[in-house]
């Protein structure tokens, strides 16, 4: 199995380290308003990519659990949601700091900010739901149903709604995307590795949490 090998973890470390060094030291185009804060694109945006991937993992394993009733699938689903929420919070915080210096306020009523916050609420509700059920089997099944039910609605929230309204983010409401005018080739060489690196790190974190949880259950069974 690919997930059991180690090379992708080293690749993840390498890419994240590269994106941190190159992101802080590399050359960036000089733009009004953004100035040097454009470097945040290497840290803020990859968080969202990684979060979405982990929520996709959560939905996939929830579907798998419903078909198999295998506890392992449920553990994967919970831990990926855990790490997804963590990355989402990091994404919101980095975004808020960035917004404070470019848009003037940490929370600017931007549809993407609002959507991201609400998406996090969905997954926090998922944890509350899990916490309120005692029986393990029932907990796994009902939370899987909720997560599969909420996932497509969250996709509408994050990908479709911000495009229908005006946003301060690039690429929305008539603002051109980063790709069309801000990001030059030098930046792309850092940005794409950063995205891949953080996605790999996210999956690795989820895997570590998964192993911890499995060991915990094992030690309890003894």
């Amino acid at each position: 199995m690919l997930i059991k090998q180690n090379w992708w973890k080293y690749l993840g470390i390498l890419l994240v380290l590269y994106s941190i060094f190159q992101g802080l030291l590399g050359s960036v185009p000089e733009l009004p308003i953004l100035h040097e804060s454009i470097r945040n694109v290497y840290f803020h945006v990859p968080m969202w990519f990684a979060m979405i991937i982990l929520f996709v993992v959560n939905a996939t394993y929830s579907v798998k659990y419903l078909n198999s009733n295998n506890t392992k699938h449920d553990t994967w689903a919970v831990e990926s949601a855990n790490i997804g929420v963590l990355l989402g919070i990091l994404g919101i915080v980095t975004g808020m700091i960035w917004a404070k210096y470019t848009w003037g306020e940490a929370w600017s009523n931007d549809p993407k900010q609002n959507s991201a916050a609400i998406a996090l609420l969905v997954y926090m509700a998922y944890f509350v739901l899990r916490g309120s059920i005692e029986d393990e089997q029932k907990k796994a099944k009902i939370s899987a149903v909720y997560s599969v039910f909420a996932f497509p609605i969250m996709i509408v929230l994050i990908f479709i709604l911000p495009r229908l309204t005006d946003s301060l983010h690039p690429g929305n409401g008539g603002n051109p995307g980063f790709n069309t005018y801000d990001m030059d080739n030098d930046m792309r060489k850092v940005f794409y590795p950063a995205v891949i690196g953080w996605i790999l790190m996210g999956i690795w974190l989820a895997q570590v949490k998964f192993r911890l949880r499995t060991l915990e259950v094992k030690s309890l069974e003894k």
């Binding site: 969905v122 909420a150 969250m154 709604l161």
Partner: peptide, 12 residues
């Protein structure tokens, strides 16, 4: 729980 579960997915 009904409110917690439904409000976030009602927002869109």
């Amino acid at each position: 729980l009904m409110a917690i579960l439904s409000f976030p997915i009602m927002v869109p």
